[in-house]
Design a protein around this nucleic acid. Structure first.
Lengths: 290, 290
DNA sequence: AGAGGACTGAAAGAATAGTTTCATTATTCT
DNA sequence: AGAATAATGAAACTATTCTTTCAGTCCTCT
């Protein structure tokens, strides 16, 4: 075999393009738990990948093996070689890249940020915030700033699918005071404000609170001045080896909130989701297939 | 099984004394190339250890397994767990919350997504993509879809600070063909397309490519059909315990790209950044301190 | 030294795994 | 739109792998 020094994973990656749908599914299943999944019986692997056993048999032949057993034998050889080599060192994330590569440094920093941020979250606060966001008896306003408006919009897009009465306010636009005209006692504001705290957003928060709104704040480890106005405050670490801050941890938090709120409101939103799906079908916005 | 959290190696070690001659031989053979040798057929292992197959069959039963296949299954599980790494291990992220709480389940899923996605990135691709994004001799167009346009915009906002000639195209708007009028040979397109791949975005990519643009694609593990048009393709795992997919891993990737491009272009962008700062000062957009 | 008991492996039998065929379904090309 | 082609999985078939039996061997103890 001429490509003897390539790992099977490499060979699969290289051919990924030329594979068919079922084969690609299979390839992903193999790489997902590499190499463990390839070392089990053919039927198990097929089931994991949700393809038939012949598909597996055919693909390993495509990869240049005489049959599945030979494929496994190669996999075991690889494993043998790997274990005797420098093991344990899993502190690099992108395995091909050197330790000092941006990919590894950045990812490491984000993981640390997640660690620290999550460790400090009060579960009761989290649950309370989700309950409040799920409460359809009051309206929900979502506010972001210059950079954070992308996060705000992400939350908005999802909350809009989950519940009615969701309003996205762009604090970056001069028109934001218009939106505050109709704020009622008990309305909820989800506000994003991180470093380079914006005067506009603070003003907006002050007015909203004065009008009786309850504020859920997403901010950074140093906390936006808005935190003194907020009912509930989530702070994420955002420092990474970059000229800018990272929104990854905050996004993680936002996505978790979305998932939790969705769980809370499932009974009410099932129909809502179905209606949305129907509309998508009618607009042919998406390709029919995964 | 009560010794469920002991590795098989541990269990063999513990019993080493009580084993018979042939079994000890076998034990050493297993531990010699652990776990690879135990994952092959029983006959191979027997031959390696220079014992008979019944000896192997008997010993695995002594170790508490119903048969050799069950022993192998356990070995594979162990391998799986090992590969997913020490950080992943039984760690709860939000310490106050129970293990089954959404905060922990979600975070765990995202960390796994990051791990798997990063492991598959080709560093050369990454570096090449960054170089291309930093190349100011051609224009940069950034395109997102229904949900991903938040990611696209995030990239846009930062690239706009780093370099000139950055254009944000909303594929969700009907006006996108207007933007393609001026595309020139060699322009770069950064396109986001994840599950529920959008027909609009695909069309846009096809036209862009036909006009000579080079495409950098950010997609999910199943890859948007655009990947066949793309020069470079980054795929992230996006599955989380939620009704929706996670953008966190993709955002991490985008932020890393931003950091790397910033590093590449620092000489050119220093002035640009200063100008931006001055403008911020003049607009009094931000509160003065940190 | 010799009997009892445990250990071991050859070989047959049972079970499981892997391969191939073929009809069905999806996709591509005209 | 329809024909041609490719992809896919059910099922039958084949091969391999695992288990068990049983007879021979090695050790231990009297």
């Amino acid at each position: 075999m001429d490509d003897a020094n390539l790992t099977i994973a490499d060979r699969i990656q290289a051919r990924l393009e030329t594979l068919t749908r079922a084969e690609r599914q299979l390839a992903h299943a193999i790489l997902e738990n590499y190499p463990a999944s390839g070392l089990g019986p053919i039927a198990t692997l097929a089931k994991d990948a949700d393809v038939s056993t012949p598909t597996v048999a055919r693909m390993v032949q495509k990869l240049g093996f005489k049959g599945y057993p030979e494929f496994q034998a190669d996999l075991r050889e690889e494993l043998k070689a790997k274990v005797s080599g420098p093991i344990a060192k899993h502190d690099t994330w992108a395995e091909g890249a050197p330790e000092g590569h941006m990919l590894n440094r950045f990812t490491e920093a984000v993981i640390q940020n997640i660690r620290h941020s999550l460790a400090q979250i009060d579960t009761n606060d989290f649950d309370a915030a989700c309950a409040q966001l799920a409460d359809t008896s009051s309206r929900l306003h979502i506010v972001g700033g210059r950079i954070t408006h992308t996060l705000a919009e992400y939350l908005f897009l999802h909350m809009q699918m989950i519940r009615p009465e969701v309003i996205h306010i762009q604090s970056t636009s001069n028109a934001w005071p218009h939106y505050l005209l109709d704020v009622k006692e008990g309305d909820t504001f989800a506000i994003f404000d991180v470093r380079r705290y914006e005067s506009n957003t603070l003003k907006l928060a002050e007015i909203a609170q004065a009008r009786g709104a309850r504020i859920i704040l997403f901010t950074d480890q140093w906390r936006s001045p808005i935190h003194s106005l907020a009912d509930i405050c989530f702070s994420s670490r955002i420092v990474v080896p970059s000229a800018w801050d990272s929104a990854a941890t905050t996004l993680l938090l936002v996505e978790t909130v979305i998932a939790a709120v969705q769980d809370l409101s499932w009974a009410d939103t099932k129909d809502r989701m179905q209606t949305l799906e129907d509309m998508f079908d009618q607009t042919k916005l998406f390709r029919k297939f995964i």
